[in-house]
Design a protein around this nucleic acid. Structure first.
Length: 398
DNA sequence: GGCAACTAGAGGACCACAGGTAGCA
DNA sequence: CTTGCTACCTGTGGTCCTCTAGTTG
């Protein structure tokens, strides 16, 4: 039995909210994070199964446990027999996702048919389904029920699946954002690259499956319904992927190969991950990449806005320092260094940040109008009637 | 290489006040 | 449950100041 929910203190905590520094059961997670727009932006992730106190970063597919960075390092240290365990990045999410959406983001918990669900998991998820109607039954409920922001998703795949990954990547960048299933979820969810639709596996809804309480029908997983699925009013694709759209987040894909005319080389055991979402990797793997992350071939995309990447990574439990380190999966340049790739990535990031700085959004036009005509002294507002050095309504220059 | 001086850029503080929100009767 | 009132909080833009990182001698 893991730690109890920080909120209700009754049920086992399942998810960790870094913004609140709280471990919550799924029901309370929905309660707390459906309260307002700000709370809905909190990114949450699974709780570490081992220490039950830190946000889980990876899922060990061999042990079927979710592990935080420390527990991952401790449990899969280089040289140990467990170092070769296949691990999979764990997604963060925000918003007020429905049970089906959560099950898709973290499908590994539930999809593995020969693994019993976590104790209480079924109960809690059933409870969540109930609370779903209870908590989110307001006017905004239909919108709130949508997955507002899958902050990160990842594939963990075998090296043999490179081609499959690339085909998926291709379709994703062409068709726009789509929820990416984990590769090992393919038993449950298969991706048809031609129709770009998910096909739920029949086993998912078998009698014995804990999906009995779920109905994936409540979400149409086709790309065409992306806007509906994610709620256009909450998060625009433009916001999600910045000006350049989703392609901007797959630029890194081009870097390793595009710098030369060579065909993509077979990646080192470390990884062939194509992502700017280095946040889901372990800090410290930099030096141990070949030992520690043989399964980090994840092709991932990031739902992070990119602008405040360090903070957002922190929200996901990742040190912003990661941003400064070379992604372990990137192949070295011709001179054996990552400097060029890193520099170009940093340059792009800075340019984008600079550009977005001026993308200031006004929440209250009335207040802006008021501020525009308000009198100032050296930039500061002054009381009406006081002497001032600048009158916005006066066309004379001072 | 180490140090000080200088420069450029980023980020935050400051100001008044209309409008929003919470709490209470 | 609704209404009215009060108190407190939020957001708005231009300028200045401080801090940090980088450059130069």
């Amino acid at each position: 039995m893991g730690a109890l929910c920080d909120y209700c203190g009754e049920h086992r905590s399942m998810v960790y909210c870094r913004s609140d520094s709280a471990a919550l059961c799924l029901s309370c997670d929905r309660n707390v994070h459906s309260a307002n727009a700000l709370s809905r932006r909190h990114t949450r992730t699974l709780l570490c199964d081992r220490c039950s106190s830190q946000p889980a970063m990876v899922r060990c597919l061999e042990e079927n446990t979710s592990l935080c960075q420390n527990c991952d390092w401790n449990g899969h240290s280089a040289g140990s027999p467990t170092a070769a365990h296949k691990r999979q990045n764990i997604n963060c999410y925000s918003g007020c996702p429905s049970s089906a959406e959560l099950s898709r983001v973290w499908s590994f918990i539930l999809d593995i048919p020969d693994v019993a669900p976590e104790p209480n998991c079924e109960q809690i998820i059933s409870m969540m389904s109930i609370s779903e109607s209870a908590v989110c039954s307001g006017d905004n409920a239909p919108e709130d029920n949508r997955l507002l922001d899958i902050a990160s998703a990842a594939f963990a795949n075998d090296l043999n699946n490179d081609d499959k990954q690339k085909s998926v990547m291709g379709s994703s960048s062409e068709a726009g954002l789509k929820p990416l299933p984990h590769a090992n979820d393919q038993a449950a969810v298969s991706v048809d690259s031609t129709t770009a639709k998910y096909t739920p596996d029949k086993h998912m809804f078998s009698k014995d499956s804990i999906y009995e309480d779920f109905s994936m029908d409540d979400i149409d997983l086709s790309y065409e319904n992306y806007e509906e699925l994610f709620g256009n009013s909450h998060i625009q694709t433009e916001e999600l992927f910045d000006d350049a759209g989703i392609d901007s987040y797959f630029e890194m894909k081009e870097v390793p190969y595009g710098s030369s005319d060579e065909q993509p080389k077979p990646q080192p055991a470390a990884s062939n991950a194509v992502s700017v979402d280095s946040g889901m990797s372990n800090p410290g793997v930099k030096d141990e990449s070949s030992l520690c992350i043989p399964v980090r071939q994840a092709i991932s995309y990031s739902g992070f806005t990119g602008e405040s990447i360090p903070a957002e990574y922190q929200d996901c439990g990742v040190s912003p320092m990661l941003l400064l380190g070379e992604p372990p999966w990137l192949p070295a340049g011709p001179d054996g260094s990552f400097a060029g790739i890193r520099d170009s990535a940093i340059t792009r990031y800075k340019e984008k940040k600079k550009r977005r700085k001026f993308d200031h959004k006004i929440r209250y036009e009335s207040r802006k109008a008021r501020a525009d005509v308000r009198k100032r002294v050296k930039g500061r507002f002054v009381k009406a009637g006081e002497a001032y050095d600048y009158d916005p309504l006066d066309t004379r220059s001072y």
